[in-house]
Each structure stands twice: as structure tokens, then as C-alpha cells.
């Protein structure tokens, strides 16, 4: 099979691209530091201005781009496989919307100004609340349809509460702050954000990454998969809580970044021979590439306007998705 032979090559290419974009992200910014100087400064233990910029501004930004992109790509691939629906994406479970609501409430109540991690912690609390409700509604015996319906209900409710907070916002500045935060961005994040998000993401990745073979079996439907020895409850638990931990943490530190989790698995699926287990690592790397590339672009296109990352991924992602739909339509006709 050609996909068998091409797969290691594809993973290697994606890994190289990820590394290249990571280095490019480290060396892109308004400070205009030359490539060699910036890398040298990062690796040195000097404490001059360049080293400071590299360590405190560029490194966390590049790392978060990598981590958040990998999270979105991986969880998108897992959820599409678990729900056997190519339209599934991390936002479907209501986790992004609830994490946003947590952050918005922190801004609205002024809690976010009280200490540095107040906002991301509030967002994480929102994600935890959402996942507990989804799991409670979907129940022990579970079922993909219940998970989707519960996720849609929670997304809508969290969206409504966010709108209410905007509606009742005490002053226009708070409203603008809420709006801007919701657009999603990696600007001005610090290593503290990296350390906050990393443990949740690593746990989430471990849970999601363990599902490869179960997702392969689920290709034949949940009952056939169960008859082949898959514990559906365990798969549901790992998919839902793994997404909550990793995507909740991603949303907490960067806001909601759309379309990555939907589009990346779509692009890569034909390249891995459509096999769900193979899509997971490919999609994680692809997601990292996409978010880092977008984050480099926002710095290049409009360095002084602070173009939001989530805006760019949607502007590029939506037409691209439309093209994918168009291509699928042509193959169906």
C-alpha cells in the first residue's frame, strides 16, 4: 500500500516543517534581531536585552503556538474519529465556549486584574464545568450522539452567558477587553502561561494519544468495535476528558482559536490513507505547523496593529474549508 510507505516520510516532513516554523517563530518580531544573534542569545546565559526578549517574549510565544496547535490538531482528529463525523472539532464539546465564559467572567468581575493567572484559571474552571456536564448527560453507557447534543447545548448556553456579560458590561473598556480576548491571540504571553498550560496539555495528549487503535476499530461502528474488545466507556472518558484538559488549557492561555481542529485532520486524512490511528500524530504536527504559521503571519502582515491569531485562522480556514466541501461535492456527483 502506498500510504504504508509514505507514512514515515509524511511524519518526517511534518516534523521538519514544525521545527522550521518554530525557529522562524523565534526569530520573527518587532525587535528586528538577526537570526543568528537571536538563537545565540537564547542559548547563552547572558542577561542582556536580546536574551531577555528571546527568553521572556519569543520563546513562550513559539512554545505556546506549538503546544496549542498540536492540541487542536490532535483533539480534532480524535473527536472526528470517535464521533465518526468529519465535521467534529474541539469546539463541539462546548469546552472552548465554556473556557471562554470562565475567562470572560474573570474579566467582567475584575478578578483577572487581581493576579496574573486569575484569567487562565477561571477559563480552566469553565472547561472543567463543561466536561462534567457533558459526561453526566452522556451517561455511563454513553453514546456519540448524546455527547454531541450535550456539547451543543453547553456551547449555546456558554455563548449566551458570554453575550450577557458583554450586554451588562460596566464600561466599554471591559467590553472591548472581553471581545479582544475572545478573538484568540498569543501576544504578550509569558513562560508562566507555558508552565500553567503544559501539565494539562501533557495529560490531555497522553489520554488522546492512547486512543489510536480504538479509533481504528470504531471505523466499523461502535457495536462492532465493542465486539472486537473496545471498552466504549473508557474510550468516551479518554476522548472527552483528554480534550477538556488539553483544549481547556489552550483556550485558557490563548482564547478560542477556531478552524484548526476542523481543517487540519481534513487536509491530512487522505495523506495517511484515512486510518484514524495514523491521523493522530500527523494531525498534531499539522496543527502545530498551522498555528505557528498563522502566528508568524499576524506578526508580518500587520506588526503594529496586533492582528488577532483567531481572526486569521478563521479568515484563512473558512474559505479553505469551503473549498474542501466543494471538492467533496464534486467527488459525490
Amino acid at each position: 500500500m502506498s500510504a504504508d510507505r509514505h507514512y514515515p516520510l509524511l511524519i518526517a516532513l511534518l516534523a521538519i516543517l514544525t521545527l522550521a516554523l518554530f525557529l522562524l517563530s523565534l526569530t520573527t518580531g518587532p525587535a528586528g534581531i538577526a537570526f543568528a544573534d537571536s538563537i545565540k542569545a537564547l542559548l547563552s546565559d547572558k542577561a542582556d536585552g536580546v536574551a531577555l526578549i528571546m527568553r521572556e517574549i519569543r520563546l513562550p510565544r513559539a512554545m505556546l503556538g506549538l503546544m496549542i496547535g498540536a492540541t487542536l490538531g490532535l483533539s480534532g482528529a480524535v473527536l472526528q474519529g470517535y464521533l465518526r463525523n468529519p465535521l467534529a472539532e474541539p469546539g463541539l464539546l462546548g469546552i472552548s465556549a465554556s473556557a471562554s465564559l470562565g475567562a470572560v467572567l474573570a474579566i467582567y468581575t475584575g478578578l483577572s486584574a487581581s493576579f496574573l493567572l486569575a484569567l487562565p484559571l477561571a477559563a480552566l474552571a469553565g472547561a472543567v464545568a463543561a466536561v462534567l456536564v457533558v459526561q453526566a448527560i452522556a451517561g455511563a453507557r454513553g453514546g456519540a450522539l448524546l455527547v454531541i447534543l450535550a456539547g451543543i447545548a453547553i456551547s449555546s448556553f456558554a455563548g449566551a452567558m458570554t453575550s450577557l456579560a458583554l450586554n451588562l458590561s460596566p464600561n466599554p473598556f471591559a467590553a472591548v477587553e472581553i471581545m479582544f480576548w475572545m478573538l484568540g491571540s498569543l501576544t504578550d504571553r509569558s513562560m508562566v502561561h507555558v508552565w500553567l498550560a503544559a501539565p494539562f496539555m501533557l495529560i490531555g495528549w497522553a489520554m488522546l494519544g492512547s486512543l489510536g487503535r480504538a479509533l481504528d476499530a470504531l471505523t466499523l461502528g461502535s457495536e462492532t468495535a465493542a465486539s472486537m474488545g473496545i471498552e466504549l466507556r473508557k474510550v468516551q472518558f479518554l476522548a472527552v476528558f483528554g480534550t477538556a484538559a488539553s483544549v481547556g488549557a489552550a483556550t485558557a492561555v490563548a482564547g478560542a482559536i477556531g478552524f484548526v481542529g476542523l481543517v487540519v485532520p481534513h487536509i491530512l486524512r487522505p495523506l495517511v490513507g484515512a486510518r484514524p490511528s495514523r491521523l493522530l500524530p500527523a494531525s498534531a504536527l499539522g496543527g502545530a505547523c498551522m498555528v505557528m504559521a498563522a502566528d508568524i503571519l499576524v506578526r508580518i502582515i500587520a506588526p503594529e496593529r496586533d492582528l488577532k491569531l483567531g481572526v486569521l485562522t478563521a479568515i484563512v480556514g473558512a474559505p479553505f474549508f469551503l473549498w474542501l466541501v466543494f471538492r467533496t461535492r464534486r467527488s459525490l456527483l
Binding site: 465518526r84 487503535r213 470504531l218 461502528g221 457495536e223 484515512a274
Partner: peptide, 22 residues
Amino acid sequence: AQEREIAWAVPAEMVVALGRFP
């Protein structure tokens, strides 16, 4: 199963090989 569900465009050989899963 009665429903002949194959969710993704995978090769027929891979579908059969899934039987070795357990």
C-alpha cells in the same frame, strides 16, 4: 453487524486486519 458501517475511506485489507485487534 447488520449495519455495514465503514466510516473512513480505508483500504479493504485494513478493514479485514481489524479483526486481529483483540
